[in-house]
Amino acid sequence: MTSFNSIIAAVAVVGLLLGHGANAQEKQWTKITIGTEGSFAPWNYEEGGKLKGLEIDLAEDICRRAKLECSFIVQDFDGLIPALNVGKIDAVMSGMSATAKRAEVIAFSQPYATGGQTFGIQKGGPLEALPFKGELINLNDEASALDKIEKLKAALKGKTIGVQAASINASFLDRYLKGIVDVREYKATTQHDLDLSAGRIDAIVASYNYILDAAKKPGNRDMLTAGPRFIGGVFGNGSSIGLRKSDVKLKAMLDEALIASFADGTYKNISEKYFGYDATPQYKR
């Protein structure tokens, strides 16, 4: 991009000469645009043309607290971080987990939910007997996690697994099950659900809360969770608001609002409404 930047620089010099130059300070935030996928129930989804979900209610609450006017833009998950970095949106609230890899390019707020990730399968399929059912495996403790993953490998060998493109689940398969399973990447999780129920793939890896909710839909009646739940490591610290690294002030505003929402029980009500349990995370002031 050097040549492009040099053109921009030349334009900038002219701009400065004309007296239009300004320092690129962070602006005073009065309104922000939030990017979300809009097809990841119960986190965010569209119903009758209206956006709903835990993140929509949460955004409304924290924006009120931070005195921000917030609007949503719906777009595919794999384009959210590029869209944030090019300035199409100011924040991401889309069940996006704060991982070390993503933290290289964007900043994250306090996490607001950690349900973990797990396998989704079809009832009666060969993977129903996947070991460690319901057990929580923390990938931060990689040594003991690897032992268990070895056992999973035997059960998963040669299977086809669907994940959302650019998701933590795609990174997980790439890191731990490469060469063992055949990976298919989808734009939207609803698309891998369709393929799971059509029998094109043997399993999906997705958010635990997502699979529980998806299984309630008429088309996914035979969907079940299977195997262990994973947290930590490539899965990161749980869903957080994604922000540009340069927007330090905005991050401070939103963190404060999130903590206030956790503290006075508003978040408890929202999470009970969408997840069916109190998902209020551990938080630091």
């Binding site: 971080i81 590029p82 090019v86 990447e185």
Partner: peptide
């Protein structure tokens, strides 16, 4: 290309 962009965040290149 779409995968590469999602990983590298460098659209134009």
């Amino acid at each position: 290309a779409a995968k590469l962009i999602a990983e590298s965040f460098r659209v134009i290149e």
